[in-house]
């Protein structure tokens, strides 16, 4: 058994750092678990699609999540969340998407269209996924810097409750791995992300109850 996570984003959004924090925290929490992080990205430093695979479990060997094998897709950017989920999100998995788009040059020069975030949500729900939309960039700005959106997403992931890693371990890894001068902003980003996700989950629960009531 393994917990398989794919972190998606655009180069420069900090998705690789985010995946390293999760993996590092997993080792801190459990001295016997195996951990792998596999990164897939193009040659560019920035601006290209980035997907980082995080695998935690006793039988994990390779660094790549198998097709349709991810328990959770955590996306720093909605289009990248869609791209990665189509290949990797398992049926019934969870997708948490930062709603702030980073438009591809292909869209800017008018060759193709950027999908509506609602269409992405609907599409992924069609895969049986639980989809959460979170404006992590806005939350990060509230915490002090847009760059902390990755740690907002980490906070959100921790609220989800399925990650086999304790919050203290996550925070210890955050403290060690984010730039020290940005530590306070990141700790705040984590808290705000956690809170925002809790609210989304509560709303979802209420929504489901309301539906049931409706049927009755």
């Amino acid at each position: 058994m393994s917990f398989d996570l794919v972190v998606a984003g655009v180069g420069g959004q900090g998705s690789i750092l985010l995946s390293h924090i999760v993996a590092d925290a997993a080792i801190r929490c459990d001295s016997s678990t195996r951990v792998r992080v596999g990164e897939t990205f193009g040659a560019a430093m920035r601006g290209g699609s980035v997907a980082s695979h995080v695998r935690i479990g006793k039988d994990v060997y390779g660094p790549l999540v198998s097709k349709a094998g991810a328990d959770v897709v955590l996306a720093m950017e909605p289009l990248e969340g869609l791209r990665v989920s189509i290949d990797f999100l398992k049926r019934g998995g969870v997708a948490i998407l930062n709603t702030r788009p980073w438009y591809p040059v292909d869209v800017n020069i008018g060759v193709c269209k950027y999908p509506e975030v609602e269409a992405i949500q609907e599409g992924l729900s069609g895969l049986g996924a639980d989809v959460y939309l979170l404006d992590a960039t806005e939350v990060a700005i509230e915490a002090g810097h847009a760059k902390a959106a990755n740690v907002v997403m980490l906070g959100a992931l921790s609220s989800l409750g399925t990650l086999p890693v304790d919050e203290e371990c996550l925070l210890a890894a955050v403290r060690d791995r984010v730039p020290q001068k940005a530590l306070d902003v990141n700790l705040k980003a984590f808290e705000l992300g956690k809170k925002a996700m809790k609210e989304l989950m509560d709303t979802k629960k209420l929504g489901k109850t309301a539906d049931c009531t409706g049927v009755n």
């Binding site: 430093m45 920035r46 601006g47 349709a68 189509i86 591809p104 292909d106 193709c112 999908p115 599409g123």
Partner: peptide
Amino acid sequence: VDEARESLRELVAPRSSTLC
């Protein structure tokens, strides 16, 4: 083939690699 997955591909815009 997972039809739901395949039909979603039409939504995906390519992301060309860019300079910063």
